[in-house]
Simulated scan of single mutants.
Amino acid sequence: MSSAPITLLRKDALRRRLGGIANSTLHDWLSPSSPRHDPAMPRPIQLGANTVAWVESEVEEWLAAKVASAKKTHGGAR
């Protein structure tokens, strides 16, 4: 049985992947107490006491859903 390797993104790589968003934006999207909270945003996994990462495939799915929603709502371009 063969499974695809899991690629993890650390915070800086995730922020770059999301267009260079600010650290505060990422925290807002993840924080349920923020008005900018996005409950669909993938949650990080704990790798160590002070180390978290995001599963790249989950981030890709989330991005694809955001793009599809934007295209449906705004006709693709702003």
Rank of each mutant, 00 (worst) to 15 (best):
I45M: 15
L47K: 02
G20D: 09
I45V: 09
Q46V: 10
E56A: 14
V59E: 04
L63P: 00
L14I: 00
P44I: 04
A4R: 03
G76P: 03
L8K: 06
A49R: 06
S31P: 09
S3H: 05
L30V: 03
T73R: 11
T51M: 15
P44D: 08
M41F: 08
A40E: 03
T51K: 02
A22S: 14
P32M: 06
V59C: 07
E60F: 08
T51Q: 01
G75E: 11
L26G: 14
V55R: 07
A64P: 12
A77K: 12
S2Q: 00
P44A: 05
L18C: 06
A64L: 13
A40M: 06
I21E: 01
S34M: 04
R17K: 14
S2M: 00
W62S: 00
V67I: 08
H74M: 12
A68N: 05
I21W: 03
L14A: 11
W54Q: 10
K71T: 11
P32R: 09
H27N: 15
R36Q: 10
N50R: 05
E61I: 03
L8Q: 13
G48E: 09
V55I: 10
L8P: 15
H37S: 15
I21Q: 04
P5F: 14
L18A: 15
R36D: 12
D12N: 09
M1V: 08
E56V: 00
W62P: 00
V55E: 09
E61W: 08
L14N: 04
K11R: 05
A70P: 01
L9V: 01
E61M: 12
K11G: 09
G75F: 04
N50E: 10
H74R: 15
G20A: 08
W29L: 08
T25M: 04
K71N: 13
T7R: 15
P44R: 02
A13S: 12
P44Y: 11
A49P: 13
V52M: 02
T7E: 11
L63C: 14
P42K: 01
H74G: 06
A4E: 07
R15E: 05
L63T: 00
L30T: 07
R43K: 08
R15I: 11
D28F: 08
D38L: 13
A65H: 07
S31L: 04
P5N: 15
D38R: 14
V52T: 07
Q46H: 04
S3Q: 13
T25L: 13
A40K: 10
S57N: 07
G19Q: 11
K66F: 14
I45L: 05
L18F: 03
R17H: 06
S57W: 00
S24V: 07
T73M: 11
A53N: 11
N23G: 07
T51A: 03
E61T: 10
V55L: 03
T25Y: 06
T73G: 13
K72T: 05
W54T: 13
K66A: 09
E60K: 08
Q46I: 02
S2R: 01
G48I: 06
R17V: 01
L18K: 07
G48H: 11
I45E: 10
P39Q: 06
R78K: 14
A70G: 15
P42L: 01
I6W: 13
M1S: 15
R78A: 13
G48M: 03
R16D: 13
V67D: 07
